[in-house]
């Protein structure tokens, strides 16, 4: 498997985790006995996909990122590493735990307990917002490499 494909798998799993968290949110807004299973499955799926995002992205970061980092830092968008990558790699650790917590929270009484339903709604919403921020930061990092390489062409 090429490293480029590995890199593409990272945001793919991330977006799927984000969509899965939206699924949890919407199902929980309409929580009934009939969709309890779907809420729990979607919560577990969100966590699994977020862990896959972590493992794939983490492997790529540890093994291959140093070359991209050097390119970014030599280019005009060094902030892509110094702010966006540094922030992303650490905030993501929180997102991983948040998605794991979501899988735990959906095991509760989502239908009968207003408190549990509230927790699931807020946590799934936070997963969505934080994942969107991660996707945005990833775009800045990719663009940082691109503009650095383009700068060498002129």
């Amino acid at each position: 498997m090429s490293k480029e494909l590995l890199l593409m798998l990272h945001p793919t799993f991330g977006v799927l985790a984000l969509i899965s968290a939206v699924w949890v949110f919407v199902e929980t807004l309409n929580a009934r006995e009939v969709n309890t299973g779907r809420i729990r499955n979607a919560g577990a799926l969100t966590a699994v996909l977020m862990w896959l995002t972590y493992v794939v992205g983490g492997y790529w970061y540890v093994v291959y990122y140093a070359a991209d980092k050097a390119i970014i830092n030599a280019g005009p968008w060094s902030i892509s590493h110094s702010f966006f990558m540094e922030t992303k790699e650490h905030v993501f650790l929180m997102l991983l735990l948040l998605a794991t917590f979501l899988a735990i929270a959906v095991r509760g009484e989502v239908v009968t307990s207003k408190a549990t339903r509230g927790v699931v709604l807020w946590v799934s919403g936070l997963v969505v917002l934080t994942a969107l921020a991660m996707e945005g930061a990833g775009a800045f990092i990719s663009m940082g490499v691109k503009v650095a390489l383009l700068a060498t062409q002129t």
Binding site: H90, L98, I104, A105, G108, E109, S113, T116, V119
Partner: peptide
């Protein structure tokens, strides 16, 4: 004042503490 239950509350508080310590 309703609680979300012991396990959910425990892991929610654990998440909050861990996130802060991680930062």
């Amino acid at each position: 004042t309703e609680s979300a239950g012991t396990t959910i509350t425990a892991f929610g508080v654990s998440y909050a503490i861990t996130s802060f310590l991680s930062a």
